[in-house]
Design a protein around this nucleic acid. Structure first.
Lengths: 149, 149
DNA sequence: ACATATAGTTAAGCACGCTTAACTAAAAAG
DNA sequence: CTTTTTAGTTAAGCGTGCTTAACTATATGT
C-alpha cells in the first residue's frame, strides 16, 4: 500500500467521523428552529456570501424563479430575512439576513464549532502544534484545488 | 492568543472549507438521484448501521411511527430498500438496502471521497506523513469524546 | 418610440413529509 | 386465558416545495 492510499484511508476515516457528527448537530439545529432544509440553506448562503437577488437564489439552488420567490416570501414572513428594492435596478430585489436570521445562523455555526473546541481541549501541546500545521496544509491544498477547477 | 484558541481557528477554517465542499457534492448527488433528503438519510443510516426496524427509523429521525412507515413504503416502491418480516418477532419488520440502494449510496460516498484523494495528490511525501499523523490523532480524540458522552 | 429581454410575483396543481386517530396483529404480562 | 403493550399500517388533513403559465414592471436594444 502506497503512502498515498494509506493517507487516503486516514482522511476518509476522519471524514466519516467528522461528517457524521457534524450532520447530526446540523439537522438537529434545523429541526429545533422549525425551518425546512431549503430555508436553512438560503440563510446559510446569505451568511457566507452576503446579500443577493431572487435570481441568484434560483440559480444556486437550481430551482425556478417562482420557487425562489415563494421561498423568500416565507422567510420574510418569518422575519428571518429582509427584502428591499435594488436602488440600481428597480426590477430587482436585494435580500439579506435580518438580525433574527443572523442570530439563528450564528448560533448554529457556534454549535458546530463547540465540538471541535472540545476535541482540541483533549490534545496536548505537541499534538496541537502538529494538528494545526497539518490542517493548515490541507486548507491551503483545498484552496489551490478550488482555483484550478 | 493561546495555542488552544489559535488551533481552534485553524480547525474551524478547515471545517468551513470541508463542510462547504462536502455539502455541495452531497446535495448535488441527492438531487441527481431524485430522492428527498429524508429518503437519503434513511439509506445512509442503513448503510452505516445496517438493517433495522420501522421503530428504529422513527426514533432516530424523531418522527412518528406512521411517518417512518410511509417513508419506508416509498423507498420500497422505488426499489431502494427491502422490507421483510422479522423471524424472531412477527410484528416487526426488518428493512435493508437493496442492491440498487447500495450502489446509489456507495457512489455518493465515492464522489465525496474523490475530492479528498485529489487533495492528497497535491501533497508531498513529508506533508502526507504529517497530515496522516494529525488526522489519526483527531479521529482518536473524537472517538474518546464520543465515549465519554 | 417601440420591441424585446429581464426580475420578480401570483395562481393552480401535484408530490412529499408530517401529524393524529383508528386500526390489525402479535407478543408479553397478569 | 384475558388484558395490556408493542410493531406496524392506513386514512384524513395540513404545510411546504416544486412546477408551469400568465402576469406586472422595469431595463435594454434598435
Amino acid at each position: 500500500m502506497t503512502d498515498q492510499v494509506q493517507l487516503s484511508k486516514i482522511i476518509r476515516k476522519w471524514m466519516d467521523t467528522f461528517m457524521h457528527r457534524s450532520m447530526r448537530g446540523w439537522s438537529h439545529h434545523v429541526k429545533a428552529t422549525g425551518m425546512s432544509m431549503p430555508q436553512f440553506s438560503i440563510l446559510m448562503q446569505l451568511h457566507y456570501r452576503g446579500s443577493c437577488g431572487i435570481s441568484e437564489i434560483s440559480e444556486r439552488f437550481e430551482v425556478s424563479n417562482a420557487a425562489a420567490s415563494q421561498l423568500v416570501e416565507r422567510l420574510v414572513q418569518s422575519g428571518l430575512i429582509e427584502r428591499a428594492e435594488d436602488p440600481d435596478d428597480r426590477r430587482a430585489k436585494l435580500i439579506k439576513l435580518s438580525s433574527k436570521g443572523k442570530k439563528l445562523i450564528e448560533s448554529g455555526i457556534e454549535q458546530r464549532y463547540r465540538w471541535v473546541d472540545e476535541l482540541v481541549s483533549n490534545l496536548n501541546a505537541e499534538e496541537r502544534t502538529k494538528v494545526g500545521a497539518a490542517l493548515t496544509m490541507l486548507t491551503e491544498a483545498a484552496a489551490k484545488l478550488e482555483q484550478t477547477q
